[in-house]
């Protein structure tokens, strides 16, 4: 069995004054799509921000291809090939759509993703390329956020609540684009509120509860009861 590209071991993460994660361990293999589920406040976003380098942790708690990266800055983590699509999209309001994408590619990693390929994935963005990013609809903004992360040609993309606040038809559209994204051999971690959706697009799932991993397993074989027990702690 090959080494996982991302290996999290005994991660205790703190958010401001309070501890959000307790000894979390998880891993992602190359090209694998993993789901993280859990109730609000379970620590999903803290986990994503920790991996991306926005929170400082013990160096060995997070390993990328064997290298301890828990304490690296976000720009250093990004340069290694990990990209985050943050919760709430968080586009740059002073930048146009195209500038948001270009700045995503700033790191200069080589790979299949470029302005052209992102525009092919989300054609609507090409039409809106010169608009301010804040003038787009929520779904279009989410496409920019995903495109911005892809532009760095990551080996692992972290997607935090990409369907939050979007209409079902838009969510379907975005998830339909997913195979085209991970088909290139890229691994993905998807944080999702909609459990059924999360299970349907991933191979494995971790369920967080109050900062701890309450359940993990293959997406296809976990039962509803197991999941709801882990989810709600009942």
């Amino acid at each position: 069995m090959p080494e996982p590209i991302l290996k999290i071991e005994g991660l205790d993460a703190h958010y401001r004054d309070f501890q959000a994660l307790y000894g979390v361990s998880a891993q992602v293999d190359q090209g694998e799509v993993v789901a993280i589920i859990g109730a609000n406040g379970a620590g999903k976003t803290t986990l994503m921000r920790s991996v991306a380098g926005l929170l400082k942790n013990r160096p060995e708690a997070i390993r990328w291809k064997g290298q301890a990266i828990g304490r690296l800055r976000a720009d250093q983590v990004a340069a290694l090939g990990i990209a985050l699509v943050p919760e709430g999209r968080l586009l740059f309001p002073s930048l146009s759509v195209e500038e948001n994408l270009i700045i995503g590619g700033q790191i200069g990693r080589k790979g299949p993703w470029s302005l052209d390929t992102v525009y092919r994935l989300f054609p609507i963005l090409k039409e809106r390329r010169n608009q301010q990013s804040t003038s787009l609809s929520g779904g279009q903004q989410q496409m920019v956020a995903i495109g911005r992360a892809l532009m760095s040609n990551p080996e692992l993309i972290l997607m935090d609540e990409i369907s939050l606040g979007l209409a079902p038809v838009i969510i379907r559209q975005i998830y339909e684009a997913l195979p085209g994204i991970v088909g290139e051999g890229m691994a993905a971690v998807i944080v999702e509120q909609d459990i059924a959706k999360a299970l349907s697009v991933t191979s494995r799932v971790y369920c967080l509860q109050e900062g701890r991993v309450a359940l993990q397993g293959l997406s296809a074989t976990l039962s509803r009861e197991e999941i709801s027990r882990a989810y709600f702690g009942m």
Binding site: A52, L54, R73, D75, A78, A83, P86, F92, L95, R148
Partner: peptide, 16 residues
């Protein structure tokens, strides 16, 4: 401009 907008997200884009 990006750093002025959102410092932490700019950091994610590789901008220290």
């Amino acid at each position: 401009r990006a750093t002025s907008d959102r410092q932490d997200i700019a950091q994610l884009m590789g901008l220290n």
